[in-house]
Design a protein around this nucleic acid. Structure first.
Lengths: 179, 179
DNA sequence: AACAACATGTAACCGGTTACATGATTGA
DNA sequence: TCAATCATGTAACCGGTTACATGTTGTT
């Protein structure tokens, strides 16, 4: 099952939606740890339909066509099966950390850490802005993942700032200079 | 500049290496936050050479051919330019979190959190096994990124375990059951 | 009238993973 | 001699991003 299929199936179990609505839902919920664009969603809906995991019904607004998809029983089974599967290890590509790794001196390492701190600060703010809305949901699990993102970004921001300060302090005493 | 180009250029500044050695270096250093396979490395070496950012010299072992690459001045400049660039935001695809998000009850949400805790525990152990070796390096920045990975996995493991316990405790009192 | 949002889809492109293919050297 | 490691490379495949193409509806 493809990554995009997983998030589509999960989204459709909550309630039937069109492709456009699925995209909207992802963008305001899982996008921070699991995203998908139209270019993935529409072809995947087609495949899932052909595989019998979802079914679509025409649901136009006037002349504007729209297909609303819902899970079939086979789709629900497939979703439950995946949900009970050991998760794939987290794939992570952190350019800021690579910049720290290859830094040539404390000054530039500190700058890279501060960039990373800013990235996490921004992400944290965007998550915090969602907190109230998500907290008021019936379903408690989205809120749990939001809290996870908050904890993650808080920790990383604090860690990067602390290390950046340490490097800059060290640098002002004994200059490491160029090699 | 492609992701693979960045890690190749940085690796080659440390010292000249063959494609095979570059892969070996990545596997024992940046792989946890930035990886690359042979299928990316060799084609990228070719492109970087054509672009004049690296140069290769034949350096065979007996009849076994080998090309050792080093940075050109243009390559060093390109590396420094990238190092001073705002990093791309972290791309993250966390299947375990998606399983939590779509969980149907506390029991299964807790199980997903425990899976995620295990993932982080394993990653933390693999990093801890590298700690002494990396600490004894001349260059302090690889150790810094190792510490970051340790902090990240420690926090995530603890957070997931704590939340899993909380869910299981809650579950044993008021069973949430099916909806 | 114009623009944002709704709605669906395809095509080109990019880049990574896996498998395959080949062959030399080293050490058990 | 056999296996592990060194060494390089390509091809098929997979899947995501971006751009493009098209048309409707609702709001200003």
């Amino acid at each position: 099952m493809s990554p995009t299929a997983k998030v589509i199936l999960g989204t459709l179990r909550m309630r039937p939606r069109s492709g456009y609505e699925i995209k909207g839902f992802i963008d305001k919920s899982t996008r921070f740890f699991y995203s998908a664009g139209f270019g993935s969603i529409y072809p995947e809906l087609k495949r899932l339909r052909e595989a019998g995991l979802i079914e679509g019904s025409d649901d136009p607004t006037g002349d504007r066509r729209r297909v609303t998809y819902r899970l079939t029983r086979a789709g629900e089974r497939a979703l439950d099966d995946w949900l009970a599967t050991e998760p794939a290890p987290i794939e992570l590509r952190d350019e800021a950390l690579l910049q720290v790794f290859f830094a040539q001196d404390d000054e530039r390492a500190a700058a890279a850490l501060e960039s990373k701190a800013t990235v996490h600060a921004d992400a944290g703010e965007r998550l915090a802005a969602m907190e109230e809305r998500v907290a008021s949901l019936d379903n408690p699990y989205p809120y749990l993942t939001l809290q996870n993102g908050l904890a993650y970004n808080r920790t990383m921001k604090a860690w990067c700032e602390r290390e950046a300060v340490r490097l800059r302090r060290r640098r002002s005493k004994k200059s490491k200079g160029t090699r």
